[in-house]
Design a protein around this nucleic acid. Structure first.
Length: 329
DNA sequence: CGGATTTGACCTGCGC
DNA sequence: GCGCAGGTCAAATCCG
């Protein structure tokens, strides 16, 4: 994942309404009052323009610097995340290879078993054949298996993984290799939906729930039902949702919240459209059109906000004003 | 009262 | 064939 190319971090501060650059000669009368230092108009304007250009260069250099810092941060985040993914994969292999595992089980977790975990959210997916021994052969082949790791509060004893679907618990069992009970769920949102889910805490870290999904939903999520086909509840204002559907996981980041991006992405599983081994845990990489749309939405939200534009105008004019006063800044 | 959850019994597949 | 373990069923129970 690479966030930096997705969104340009350069601020396109459209300060035209302020008329400080291209319309400096047409300054308002009151504007000249506080800068009248006895110089003639053309000299003053020259000085002001030069100062503005200088300031603009400075701000754009600062902007570049911040962009670079953000890129570095993203890279560091990616590196750390991949380390976590590796670590979890190793742990999952260990956990799922007891000596007396059933034949079908032990063969499942070799190979394309992508397991991921986020520190506080959910994650991941893969297509494995896990737990398929009970099913007829054709189901074994076609059933899509994915696994999601969800970190919960240790005090939270419920085996509930919120993923946008409605589940009905039909059984619970204590398994041999894990003292924590495993809960069995069926999708109850659509009566004909064949999807099943197993949820169990990991033996190593009981704050981590492992949800194993089996099959494909033949219906939309509840969120899809209530808000149309859009998986994002409000792209322009308060965007954030996570959901699963038959075509794969959907992650929408809520940029208005202070939580870390990690918290906002979850349930990145069920890449059912393909059986190939996927790199899990990617936030949904939208098409360039959608990315552009999101950026435009953000920009328009900001520019339409009178408070923001007023504050921006005040800040810029304030800095310009102060720069023309010696001893300040 | 109806839907969801719990839980013991039963079923099925696998290893020995 | 037997025993074990995981998965499912369904009656009992809970809860809003």
């Amino acid at each position: 994942m690479d966030y930096s190319p997705c969104i340009s971090t350069s601020l396109d501060l459209n300060i035209k309404p302020l008329r400080v650059l291209d319309e400096a000669p047409k300054r308002e009368p009151q504007e000249s009052n506080f800068m009248d230092l006895g110089l003639n108009t053309s000299v003053k304007e020259e000085i002001n323009t030069g100062a503005l250009v200088e300031e603009l260069n400075r701000v754009s250099a600062e902007n570049k610097k911040l962009t670079k810092m953000l890129t570095v941060m993203c890279e560091n985040y990616n590196t750390l995340r991949s380390q976590v993914v590796d670590y979890m994969s190793k742990n999952a292999d260990k956990e799922l290879s007891p000596s007396k595992k059933r034949k079908s089980d032990s063969s499942n977790n070799i190979g394309d078993n992508n397991v991921n975990m986020l520190t506080n959210g959910a994650s991941e997916s893969s297509s494995t054949d896990e737990d398929s021994s009970k099913k007829p052969r054709e189901e074994k082949i076609t059933a899509k298996i994915s696994r999601v790791y969800v970190r919960t509060e240790t005090s939270d004893t419920s085996l509930i993984v919120k993923d946008g679907y409605q589940w009905r618990k039909y059984g619970q069992k204590v398994t041999r290799d894990n003292p924590c009970p495993r809960a069995y769920f069926k999708c109850s949102f659509a009566p004909s939906c064949p999807v099943k889910k197993k949820v169990q805490r990991t033996a190593e870290d009981q704050s981590v729930l492992v949800a194993t999904y089996e099959g494909e939903h033949n219906h939309p999520t509840q969120m899809d039902e209530t808000s149309g086909s859009s998986r994002c509840m409000a792209i322009g204002s308060v965007p954030c949702s996570t959901s699963l559907n038959s075509s794969g996981p959907t992650i929408t980041l809520d940029l208005t919240k202070s939580k870390s991006p990690i918290d906002s992405q979850s349930n990145n599983n069920n890449n059912n459209s393909s059986n190939s081994n996927k790199t899990a845990l990617k936030p949904k990489t939208e098409s360039p059109e959608i990315q552009r749309f999101l950026v435009e939405q953000m920009a328009s939200s900001l520019t339409k906000d009178p408070g923001f534009t007023a504050a921006l105008a005040a800040a810029i004019s304030g800095r310009i004003f102060h720069q023309n006063l010696p001893g300040k800044w």
